[in-house]
Structure formats: structure tokens, C-alpha cells
């Protein structure tokens, strides 16, 4: 079945939604930390990469699936808290430019460590490989992992919304994202709010590791690097100042990226990044505060 001139199949649309869902999770992870620390964490992709290596080792050691996933979560959480304590917190009072460069440094340091420790050829994370088999719904073949990605992302986002809207910690996090200084003056504990944001962000990164390694079982040092760059662009395009718009931006860029990938003939797929980032520049020229932002708002100088 095709839609109009672009001959986009339903399968491409469902895959695009799946990619959008994964990118939305990454956007939330980046957006949450940005909210409380005003820090664009470029090293977010390396958290996903570390989780992917954990899964690769788990499958090499024949660990049971659940143990392997728990190992992945543990590695990502520990690395994330380390990043926070060693780099982000001491630099919290510095300018956004300093913090951004620091996250670049952390990102490439981790990537270099992975290259030295595990080599350039990559390792295979194949424990969940069976999720790549398709199921047929109507006359459309959909890979199981796509359905899993959409459902898992939906559940994660729902839980996060409940946490932010219905709990005291959620209220404190929202207030801290709006005006950290005033929130602290009211007794909101900076350490707890930042710690919670970093922890939730790590949980999301680990979830993304699990999903991405199914789609792309070959784990290399630059695993998820390209995805992170695309998601960061999506977060800015959507509107960085609000978690909702950042998340929508992440979803949108994943969805559009999937559609473009499906619409381009396979011998022209190398043009995808040019189209995608051309589109990003176009959107930013028209709506610099973000595609989904309400009216003119304050622009973060990041």
C-alpha cells in the first residue's frame, strides 16, 4: 500500500513512529537534565553506548536476559552519576558554553576509552535478536521491536508525566526547571532534584540502549552518536525550554528522519542527513524558539 507520490508504505510509517518513540525517550533524557542544570548533555549518547556494550558483554557471557538488562541499567546509572558528580556539579555555576564543551570532552573521552578497551570492530549484542522477526498485521509486516519500542516509550512517558504532575518531587523538579534559585529559597533541595533528574535520565538512556541494540546489534564506540546529534537537533527544533516541546521535537525528528529514509531510493540514502539538517535549519529560521513553543519566549543562549 502506498500513500500519494512519495510512495511511503505503511511499514515505513510504523517504523518511523518507532524511531520517533526512541528519539522521544532520548529527548526526555536530555531535556530533563537541561531543565534543572541548564546543561546540554552531549555525552548522553555515550551513556547509551555504554549500556549497549554492557548488553554485548552480557550476551557474550551468556547471562540470562533479565540479568543482562539489569547489568546494562546498572552500568548506565553508575556512569551517569559519576558524570554528574565529577563533571556537571562542579561546573554548575559556570557558563553554558563551558558546560557544553565539558560534555563534548566527556563524550569523546568515553568514546576513546571504548575504542581503546573494546577495539574498533565492535561487539555483538544479540540476546534480544528474535524481536527483529516481523508480525503481520493486516497486510503490513511490522518488526516486533518496533511495537515494543512504541509501547515501552509510551509507558515511560506516561509514568514520567505522572511522576512530574502528581508527586511532590515532580513539583519540585518542575519548579527547579522554571526558576532554580527561587525553588531553593523555598526549601527545594538542589541535590535531590538534580540527582533525580540525572537518575531518571539514566534510566531512559538504558532503556534506549536495550531498544537500539535490538535494531542494531553491532555495538561500536560510535554507537548512538549519530542518533544523539539528531535528537539534540530535534530538541532544539521542538523547543528546549519546555520538556513537552523538547520531547515532541525528538519524536518529530525521528519520525521525519524515518519517513525521509523510507522515501529516498536506497541508492540515495546518503542524502538523508543533508535533507534532515537542511530542514532543521529551515525550521529554526522560521521558528527560532522552537516549532512547538508558544509565542515568543526567552531564548536560552546555548
Amino acid at each position: 500500500m502506498t500513500l500519494g507520490l512519495l510512495s511511503i508504505s505503511w511499514q515505513v510509517i510504523v517504523d518511523s513512529i518507532g524511531l520517533g518513540a526512541v528519539y522521544a525517550l532520548m529527548a526526555v533524557g536530555i531535556g530533563l537534565v537541561f531543565g534543572v542544570l541548564r546543561l546540554v548533555n552531549f555525552a548522553y549518547g555515550q551513556l547509551v553506548m555504554a549500556g549497549a556494550y554492557a548488553l554485548a558483554f552480557a550476551s557474550q557471557w551468556d547471562l540470562p536476559l533479565v540479568v543482562g538488562i539489569a547489568f546494562c541499567f546498572a552500568i548506565v546509572i553508575v556512569l551517569s552519576l559519576l558524570m554528574d558528580i565529577v563533571v556537571f556539579r562542579p561546573l554548575r555555576a559556570q557558563s553554558p558554553a563551558v558546560m557544553l564543551v565539558a560534555t563534548f570532552a566527556v563524550a569523546f573521552l568515553l568514546q576513546s576509552i571504548a575504542l581503546l578497551a573494546f577495539g574498533p570492530l565492535g561487539k555483538s549484542a544479540s540476546s534480544l535478536g528474535y524481536l527483529n522477526r516481523p508480525v503481520t498485521i493486516g497486510d503490513v509486516d511490522i518488526r516486533k521491536i518496533t511495537i515494543v519500542a512504541i509501547v515501552v516509550a509510551g509507558i515511560c512517558l506516561l509514568v514520567l508525566v505522572l511522576l512530574l504532575e502528581r508527586t511532590t518531587m515532580g513539583l519540585h523538579m518542575r519548579a527547579a526547571a522554571m526558576d532554580f534559585r527561587t525553588a531553593r529559597l523555598l526549601g527545594v533541595r538542589a541535590d535531590r532534584v538534580i540527582g533525580s533528574a540525572v537518575l531518571i535520565s539514566a534510566l531512559l538512556a538504558a532503556t534506549v540502549s536495550v531498544i537500539l541494540t535490538v535494531q542494531n546489534p553491532l555495538v561500536t564506540p560510535d554507537f548512538a552518536l549519530r542518533d544523539t546529534i539528531v535528537v539534540l537537533a530535534g530538541v532544539v527544533v521542538g523547543g528546549m525550554n519546555r520538556l513537552l516541546t523538547a520531547t515532541m521535537g525528538g519524536f518529530a525528528i525521528g519520525f521525519v528522519s524515518g519517513l525521509l529514509g523510507g522515501a529516498l531510493p536506497s541508492d540515495q540514502s546518503q542524502y538523508l542527513p543533508s535533507f534532515l539538517f537542511g530542514l532543521v535549519i529551515l525550521v529554526l529560521l522560521v521558528r527560532p524558539n522552537g516549532l512547538f513553543a508558544r509565542g515568543p519566549g526567552p531564548v536560552e543562549r546555548v
Binding site: L171, A175, A183
Partner: peptide
């Protein structure tokens, strides 16, 4: 109401 609830943070 949420603004007021933030006031309880110092309790």
C-alpha cells in the same frame, strides 16, 4: 495551589 505546595518544601 502548586505555588503554595512549593512553600511546604521548607517544612
Amino acid at each position: 495551589e502548586e505555588n503554595l505546595r512549593l512553600g511546604y518544601a521548607a517544612r
